[in-house]
Design a protein around this nucleic acid. Sequence first.
DNA 1: TCCCGCCTCCCCCTTGCGGCTGAGTCTCCC
DNA 2: GGGAGACTCAGCCGCAAGGGGGAGGCGGGA
Lengths: 220, 220
Amino acid sequence: MIRVVVADDQELVRAGFGMILDAQPDIEVVAEAADGLQAIEAVAAHRPDVLLLDVRMPVMDGLEAARRVCVEYPDTKVLMLTTFDIDDYVYDALHAGASGFLLKDVRRDDLAHGVRLVAAGEALLAPSVTKRLISEFAARRPGASRRPHRLLDQLTAREQETLRLLARGLSNAEIAAELTVSEHTVKTHVSNLLSKLQLRDRVHAVVFAYEAGAVVAGEA
Amino acid sequence: MIRVVVADDQELVRAGFGMILDAQPDIEVVAEAADGLQAIEAVAAHRPDVLLLDVRMPVMDGLEAARRVCVEYPDTKVLMLTTFDIDDYVYDALHAGASGFLLKDVRRDDLAHGVRLVAAGEALLAPSVTKRLISEFAARRPGASRRPHRLLDQLTAREQETLRLLARGLSNAEIAAELTVSEHTVKTHVSNLLSKLQLRDRVHAVVFAYEAGAVVAGEA
DNA sequence: TCCCGCCTCCCCCTTGCGGCTGAGTCTCCC
DNA sequence: GGGAGACTCAGCCGCAAGGGGGAGGCGGGA
């Protein structure tokens, strides 16, 4: 039996989803909540398998609630629900650790199916969300799995190292300290790598490093 | 009526999927193919709405076929099928432009449902694939979309615009030209956004923009 | 009404950056 | 032995960048 907590600030929505789920032979709604705080309390009290969580709620919104539940009660899987698939919601929810993200116009058997999937440890996204996530994913590192970039091979080891540090925002003096060489040397390296890559200045070098995948966002 | 081409090197698999889909009142299998080249030819000949494409095939594998179809016949949506959800397959398929990725153990109504979704321009992933994509996505930029957006909201419209251009490598003079204001004004904006975001110089601003997702690699 | 935030423009000044030229050491290889 | 390339260091010079300070117009909110 899959035990579920339903959290939504609208009485009718709670009742509707609750009824759909309770009608399933293998799903049981053990509690309801009208805001984020209540949701967390309900999770603490009942330790459900799945928390069905609306994004927009008073007192504490669903994103913050999801964040806390995912940290404090990792056994409870969080399935987010929203009326509109605003981008930020999705990304925030996924970063918060949610297992899924559905729109409220979901068909009733898809909802039950989703709860079962999430309870089984799988993930689930509404089709439109999947679409955006894929395009976002595909766009970010175009062909990342294939080539490390030929241009970078033109640089000497020291130049590549310099570029890496430069792309992290270090000044020439800081790079010099990091590499334990003089600032003059760093300037030479920078100058050489700029001309090799045909870049105007260090700002362009930073842009290049990110675009070329020589530096990856989030790996600071 | 959704017109589908089924491509798989195994006769039985083609027949099975073909039967399932043909049994649907709104889906019609217009051709079959036993390898990647045949698949492309079939797409060229029939211009189907959906191409159901196995990954592992002789002559030309499904990934390469997907890549070509997505470029040459963008109206035909590609739905990949595989027995095992090997990571690289998924990522390559998504980069190739596939609209979805399903495992062959898919239930028959899920398959039909998937074809309809893809034909409608939505995307679709097998649950286990969704799970990995999400964790990959969430890991890459930990909390990227939330916190920085807060910070970005501190900036005025003009400052955000300035940051966007700055992060593309434009000099103050170039930004001024782009915004049709004086360079002095740009300097003021830059100065303000640097202090608001507590960044040292424009190089740090570029790094920030990428790390925060205010600028996304590949969207130059 | 007044005040505040935003956008715009200006001057002065210091600093970091990058181009230019030149040069010493090392290793690798012909 | 000599050449090539990488790494190191140096001085000079021009310029973009960024801080500080000041100021006017313009809109919305108290």
